[in-house]
Computed example of a mutant assay.
Amino acid sequence: MSRLTHTFAAAGAAALLVVAAFSAGAAAAPAPQSAQAPALAPAVDPKPPDPDAKRSEGDVSTNAVLSPSAAEMQYVAITPCRVVDTRSGGGRFSNGTTRSYYVGGTFGFAPQGGTTGGCGIPEGAVAVAATVLALNPSGPGRIKAWPAGVAEPGANVLYYGSESLGAGTTLTLRPGAGTDLTVKNYNASTDVILDINGYYLPQMWAYISTSGAVLDQSGRLLSATNDSAGTYTLVWDRDVSVCVGTANSDISGYIASVYTSTNISYVYIDDNAGNASNYWFNVLISC
């Protein structure tokens, strides 16, 4: 046999040995074992909330905010502020107890256990981001809260057990003077605390006629007058001195400008020649 034939035979034998070695190794490899599930720690009941603990704006449990569906609402956050505490005003709720409370304005808060002088919430607020707390209940129960002056709804804002429990929610109010919110308790007896984290207001806008009559508005405008040619005075329900006003007329032949001071916006209308003129306009105040 030639030297070349011997070389190829030796190479072929070596290759067969390598394949056999790999096959034996694969057969000898142990089968993978299934991973064991980690042991779960036993559930621990949460510590009942401290009703007097200082709340921060980053605390999700006390600042849950569910926006009202109306797109034109603006949300104003405030330092968490108490408007109701039955421990110092009114006493505990029993089964079926119903009470109406002030949330906006500056009147009536001390008798309901709230912050004297209120929380800076305007009377025109239509909803609040709130924390409702059932404190030291005698057993399981539930709480409803709805705008004062309307029929009781079917939904509850808080279900509680035999321990103190609080929940963040959005509460709709009755805007304007008088009480804003009605609260009713069912089943057990409990103290109730209501803290406010922010409030919702409609945007300030209005549609004004040539004579100064209010044709349409968001509910924030108190009055409008046509003082002289091209000059209108609009009085709002809050200080607008740091706000920005924009206005436009119905047609391009008129130019509108806005100046704000205290709770008043002055709207000036000129025609294209620069002459003061009365004409319809829309105005929006952004704060």
Rank of each mutant, 00 (worst) to 15 (best):
G120W: 03
K47L: 13
P111K: 08
P68R: 01
I121P: 02
P80Q: 04
P48H: 11
S67A: 05
D52C: 05
C119R: 06
G118H: 01
R99S: 04
V132Q: 02
S56R: 13
E123N: 09
G58T: 14
G108Q: 06
V65P: 02
T86D: 00
Y75A: 01
T116W: 02
N95M: 00
Y102D: 12
R82Y: 06
G90C: 10
I121Q: 00
V76N: 11
G89H: 03
R92I: 11
R55D: 15
L135H: 15
R99M: 01
Y102Q: 14
G105H: 00
P140N: 06
A70D: 03
R99C: 09
G118E: 02
W146R: 05
A71W: 15
I78G: 06
I143H: 09
A134E: 09
A64G: 08
G139L: 14
G141I: 03
V76W: 10
V65F: 04
R82F: 02
S69L: 14
G120P: 01
Q112S: 10
G91S: 03
Y75E: 03
R92P: 14
P140M: 01
I143N: 10
S138E: 08
A53Y: 12
R142D: 06
Y102N: 15
A129M: 02
V103L: 07
S100G: 08
A64H: 04
P111M: 04
D85L: 04
G124A: 03
D59E: 12
T116E: 12
Q74K: 15
G105M: 07
N95S: 13
G96C: 03
A71L: 05
D59G: 00
S100F: 05
A110D: 15
G117P: 13
N63F: 02
S69C: 06
S61D: 13
A127K: 06
A64Y: 09
D52R: 14
A53S: 13
S67G: 09
G96H: 06
V103E: 10
A148T: 15
I121L: 03
T62R: 08
M73H: 12
T115F: 06
V103M: 03
P147T: 02
P80H: 01
R55A: 15
P49K: 11
T98N: 08
V126D: 00
D50S: 13
A64F: 10
T98S: 01
Q112T: 12
A134D: 05
T131Q: 15
A110S: 15
V76M: 08
A134R: 12
I121M: 07
L66R: 08
W146Q: 11
A125F: 11
P68I: 05
E57F: 06
T98L: 13
P46E: 08
S100T: 15
K54V: 10
P137F: 03
I78L: 08
A77G: 13
T97Q: 02
A110T: 13
C119M: 00
V84M: 02
T79N: 06
I78M: 04
D59A: 09
S61I: 09
F107R: 13
P68Y: 00
D85W: 01
A125R: 00
S56E: 14
Y102W: 04
V126K: 04
A64I: 10
G149L: 09
C81Q: 09
P122K: 00
G149M: 07
T86R: 08
A53M: 12
T79V: 05
T106D: 13
T106F: 11
S94L: 11
F107Y: 14
T116I: 03
C81P: 09
E57P: 15
G114D: 13
Y101C: 06
V128T: 09
G96Y: 01
